[in-house]
Design a protein around this nucleic acid. Structure first.
Lengths: 221, 221
DNA sequence: CGTCGCGTTGACAAGGTTCAAATTTGGTGG
DNA sequence: CCACCAAATTTGAACCTTGTCAACGCGACG
């Protein structure tokens, strides 16, 4: 399996920026309402964020509106770390989200005074890189059905294999994450449902139960 | 334009691992012959590499042989930095390549004793991440023609806009980088040639001249 | 001079998109 | 609590971009 386990979601404390720097003297908690923009493409990259609760998506846009969702960030995930002075993508809250927010320079300063924190920050960023590497393989080389199966398994893994999986994002976001259209995502989900690999809870479209994870994994490449 | 400029290729010294650590006491130069594997997927991730001359591609494979080339690394680029103990992709020399090679732990140790080096390493890794983000947009949302145009502009940029651009990789690698087939890459190149946006040198297929960079950029999204 | 690897081109097939419409869901106000 | 409406999702049919299969050309090399 090529799913990247996000360890920080399992061990929240270790992965948190607070744990990185060892202090709470700077940075603040911030709440974002559903749909609200955390930061926009091209805006000054002053802050680095880590999700406490909720979910955020980061995405890039082409001039004509085509969109690519880079990743969905869940509790424990860090995002917004940039090289330059401006963000190269935008971030929006999928649901009401609580995030820890601190300045980039503050983070770096704090790390300078904390032995071992460098390694931890490197690990967080390298995790993003590994996710991106896996996702490039998915985008470039997997079929629609494989993409959707891989997506479900990724969410399942990151939510720690719950009985009922809740998708905090609409089909459009899933489609833009997988490089597909919403219709193709919908058709793929219907196929997997008809094959009894999953079922939706009641009449909802965002809550589902994975009935056969092994079968799903076989649909993934 | 969404092309990521690789600053290290312009300022080789600043970006080098040697410059990072400020010492030459560990790490060695190593030569890889054309086609030779630098490291393989699943192998122990002991070393970190930086290219001095030549070119390397890093890629991932699916069980049935489908391949995704993550990136082409040119002089100044660092690669092979991993979180865990093993590599999550493989790296092969496209042409005879000279690379600086040092242990991962050695690099981290050396950095601990060098003020400011952390920032430099972070910058190198964040650069990889930004490239991956741009590439996800390309893979997920661009058309075949846009992909090929973007690829040519990326190579042009990274080779500092030479009169004659040399492609060190075969069509298969380009196709696997762009998530296309070699036939589609070939057709796209023929279209751009017929539109007088580029021409091949003599009868070669790996040396070409970009006749109209602006026109190419318009084909990119 | 024949063979082999690489690249190009053509014809056809297919997976995924587009366009359209039906259906369902979830939120809102009475 | 219920009716209603807008948004989200599903489904169907036609179409199109890209992939597949096949043939051919070309240059490198023995």
């Amino acid at each position: 399996m090529l799913i990247t386990t996000n360890d920080t979601s399992r061990h929240p404390v270790d992965g948190h920026l607070v744990a990185l720097t060892g202090q709470r003297t700077f940075g603040t908690e911030f709440k974002y309402r559903k749909g609200r923009k955390v930061f926009g493409d091209g805006q000054p990259a002053e802050y680095v964020y880590q999700i406490i609760s909720g979910a955020v998506r980061t995405n890039k846009l082409l001039a004509d509106g085509r969109r690519q969702v880079n990743s969905f960030h869940l509790p424990g995930d860090m995002f917004g770390f940039e090289n330059g002075a401006i963000h190269r993508f935008s971030a929006e809250a999928l649901v009401e989200t609580l995030a820890w927010k601190m300045t980039r320079s503050g983070l770096l300063d704090a790390m300078a005074s904390q032995k071992g924190s460098t390694t931890k920050l490197l690990r967080l960023i390298t995790q993003s890189l590994q996710h991106a590497e896996n996702h490039m393989l998915l985008l470039g080389r997997k079929t629609a059905l494989e993409k959707v199966a891989a997506f479900l398994l990724e969410m399942d893994e990151r939510q720690d294999h719950p009985n009922v999986m809740i998708l905090p994002m609409p089909r459009r976001d899933i489609a833009d994450y997988l490089g597909l259209t919403i219709e193709t995502v919908s058709r793929a989900l219907s196929i997997l449902r008809d094959e009894r690999l999953l079922r939706f809870v009641e009449t909802t479209q965002r809550q589902l139960v994975l009935l056969d994870r092994f079968g799903l994994a076989q649909h993934d490449a």
